[in-house]
Design a protein around this nucleic acid. Structure first.
Lengths: 182, 182
DNA sequence: CCTTCGAACTTTAGCTTCTAAGTCTTCAGT
DNA sequence: ACTGAAGACTTAGAAGCTAAAGTTCGAAGG
C-alpha cells in the first residue's frame, strides 16, 4: 500500500535518503559509492555461494581449493601455511581439512622427510571442482560487467586498485575473516 | 629470500598472475575488477568490525540498529519485519533481540493494541552507539576516497550503481546473508 | 648418548550464530 | 464460544570458530 517497497530490502536510493534523513553530516556521494560496493559484494557472494552449492561444496571448501591451486605446482601446502593464507587459526584449519578429506577434495599425509610436517594436497576431484567453479564464476563475472565498455573497465579497475592500495597501506595485513571469495 | 611476499596474502597482481597461470580463459581485466571489489569489501568489513568492537557492540548488533534507525520514526519494528529486512529467520531474530535487550540497545514489549505483535524499539543508548559508529564510519570512508576527485567519485558511483542494477535485476531478492554492512 | 626445547599439528571444551520444527498466545471469522 | 491462522518464542541441533592443552618429532647442547 505505501511506497516503502514492502518489507524486503530498500532500494539504494531509498536507503541513502534514509541515511541523510537520520544523519545529516553525510556526503551522499560517498555513501552511494560505499553502499553500492557493499551491496555489489553481497550479491556476488550470494551468486558464488549458489554456484559452489550446485557443485556440492561449501564456500569454505572453495577457499581452501583456491589457495592450493593458486599456490602453484605441486599444489600442496601444510595446514599452517593454509591457515596463514586464509587468516584462521591452525585448529580451524585442522577441522576444515578433516571435512575436506572425507569429501575427497584433498589428501593429508605426513611429510616423510620431516615427520612433524603434514602435507595437504588437492585431489583430481578437488581440482575439477575448482575448475568447474571457476567456469561458473567467469560466466557470472562477464555477465556482471557486460554493460561496461573496455575503457570503462580499465578506468574502474584502476580506480578500485587505487582505493585498495590506500586501505591496504592503512591496515597492512589484518587477518580479518570476512568474505574472502576473490 | 623468495619473492612470494612471505606467507601472508599475495598482492593483487600476484594473485591475478596465478589465476592466469592456472586458468587460461580468464580475462585479466575482469578479474582485476572482481578481485579488487572483493578485497576492498573485506578490508572495509574489517575496519567496520574494529570500529563497532571499540564501541562494545558486534556487527550483528550494528545491523539491527541500522535497520531500526533507517526505518524512521518512531524507530520500532516487529521481530518479523526485522527478520525480513535482515534476511534471516524469525528464530534467529529472537536470539539477537534477546542479546540486545540485555545489552540495553533495544527494548522489547508487546503491542497493547494487538497483543500478538511485539515491538522492538531502539533505546537512547542504542541510538548513541549507532551515531558513534556512523561518525567513525564516515571518517573511514572519507579517508578511503580521499584520492578521488569529485568527477571520479561521480563516475565511480554511476558505474557501481549500473553494475548493481544489473545484478539485482538478475537475482531479484535473494535473501542471502553475507556482509550486509552498508 | 641423552636431555631438553621448540615447532607443527591435533584434540578438547566451549562460544556464537544460524536453521528447522514444534508450541504457545492472540486475533478474527463463523 | 469455537476454530483457524498468524506471530513470536522454545528447543534441539548443525556449522564454524577460538583458546588452551596435548602429542609428536627434529634439533641443539651438555
Amino acid at each position: 500500500m505505501g511506497d516503502t517497497s514492502g518489507a524486503g530490502e530498500p532500494t539504494l536510493e531509498e536507503q541513502i535518503a534514509a541515511y541523510q534523513r537520520e544523519f545529516q553530516d553525510l556526503d551522499p556521494q560517498v555513501e552511494k559509492i560505499v553502499s553500492a560496493l557493499s551491496r555489489l559484494n553481497r550479491r556476488m557472494n550470494v551468486a558464488y555461494g549458489r554456484q559452489t552449492a550446485e557443485l556440492g561444496i561449501g564456500n569454505t571448501d572453495w577457499e581452501v581449493l583456491k589457495a592450493l591451486v593458486l599456490s602453484g605446482a605441486p599444489y600442496c601446502l601444510g595446514p599452517g601455511d593454509l591457515a596463514k593464507r586464509l587468516g584462521l587459526t591452525p585448529a580451524a584449519m585442522t577441522h576444515r581439512i578433516d571435512r575436506m578429506v572425507t569429501e575427497g577434495l584433498v589428501t593429508r599425509e605426513r611429510d616423510e622427510t620431516n615427520r612433524v610436517r603434514v602435507i595437504v594436497a588437492i585431489t583430481a576431484e578437488g581440482r575439477e571442482k575448482w575448475l568447474a567453479a571457476m567456469r561458473l564464476a567467469t560466466v557470472f563475472e562477464e555477465d556482471l560487467l557486460q554493460d561496461l565498455s573496455a575503457d570503462e573497465r580499465t578506468a574502474l579497475g584502476e580506480v578500485l586498485t587505487r582505493l585498495l592500495r590506500r586501505v591496504e597501506h592503512a591496515q597492512p595485513d589484518a587477518g580479518g575473516r570476512l568474505s574472502d571469495l576473490d
